[in-house]
Nucleic acid binder design. Structure first.
Length: 282
DNA sequence: CGTTGAACCTGTTTGC
DNA sequence: TGCAAACAGGTTCAAC
């Protein structure tokens, strides 16, 4: 669920409360989704949170130790499918599947909850950042139109696969990919290299406007997404394609269809988004 | 290069 | 009603 707008929502929420706070204690539950749980337990306590950043779907907390053993650390978190990061009073009830507790110096706690444990968490030295986040592609909210087009038209993979590929663009997931393709009137099975300039231009505008609006509305809450303050997002009410199989396209009235593209459920309007010859009929 | 399917794990929805 | 299958915002890896 957490795609770029949801992770951005969490990042903004954490940014409002964490910088300047000290993490005084760390307690861990299940740790099978952590790269180095023992290191998290030993290297995070005592650190000061300097900044909160988002890189694609990754969240990065810049930590700094002062005193006896000064140094910087990065706490890297990926929310996977069902991950949540929330700041709550230290005595708040513990929700099921809460696997990490970071006690703060203001009687509150940063908690990580993840029922499916598809998330990821690790602590790393700043020098390791490039190795971890370097492979990620361009941020779709910052990329220029020219580079956006180049990354698409230079490839013969399906546009859906390209938008989902985190080494092409970082942050898009199944929801925003379908919403963007619907708005741009492009079928998910089209090949990147076959998109015409006008289509690339439409897609560029669609991606950027969809992501911007989703961020503005705090992301999409399909079943359980909440921001760091526990508030759900509201963009799901604006969905025009995702999870709308059988419902009418809001542009033309044709029923939205679902098909598997790039291994993922893909929702599209068969009238507005014409299929390429390769997949037509069947 | 590009595609497909399975795996990771738990919870919810759907179908018979 | 009840149980099993299908499905879910993500990523990664093997096989073709």
């Amino acid at each position: 669920m957490p795609e770029l707008p949801e992770v951005e929502t969490v990042a903004r929420g954490l940014r409002a409360v964490l910088p300047g706070r000290r993490i005084v204690d760390v307690r861990l539950g299940k740790t099978d989704f952590m790269d180095n749980p023992a290191e998290i337990g030993s290297r995070v306590p005592g650190s000061l949170v300097r900044a909160v950043r988002r890189h694609g779907k990754f969240l990065v907390l810049d930590l700094e130790h002062d005193g006896a053993r000064p140094g910087k650390e990065l706490l890297v978190v990926h929310l996977g499918m069902t991950g949540q990061l929330r700041v709550v009073p230290a005595d708040a009830e513990i929700a099921p599947h809460t696997h990490a507790f970071f006690s703060l110096d203001d009687s509150r706690e940063l908690r990580f909850r993840d029922p499916r444990r598809f998330g990821r968490m690790l602590v790393a030295a700043p020098a390791e950042e490039e190795k971890i986040l370097g492979p990620l592609g361009a941020d779709p909210t910052e990329v220029g139109e020219e580079e956006f087009g180049r990354r698409i038209t230079s490839r013969r993979a399906r546009i859906k696969a390209l938008l989902l590929d985190q080494t092409v663009f970082r942050g898009m997931g199944n929801i925003y990919t379908d919403e963007s393709l619907w708005r741009a009137k492009i079928h998910p099975a089209r090949l990147g290299a076959n998109l015409k300039p006008a289509e690339v231009a439409r897609l560029y505008r669609a991606v950027r406007s969809i992501l911007a609006e989703a961020i503005r509305l705090g992301g999409s809450s399909i079943s359980d997404f909440v921001g760091s303050n526990g508030e759900p997002g509201e963009f799901q009410i604006r969905h025009r394609a995702y999870d709308r199989e059988g419902k009418k396209c809001s542009r033309c009235g044709t029923k939205i269809r679902r098909m598997i593209v790039a291994g993922r459920s893909s929702y599209f309007c068969p009238h507005c988004q014409r299929a390429p010859r390769s997949t037509r009929k069947a």
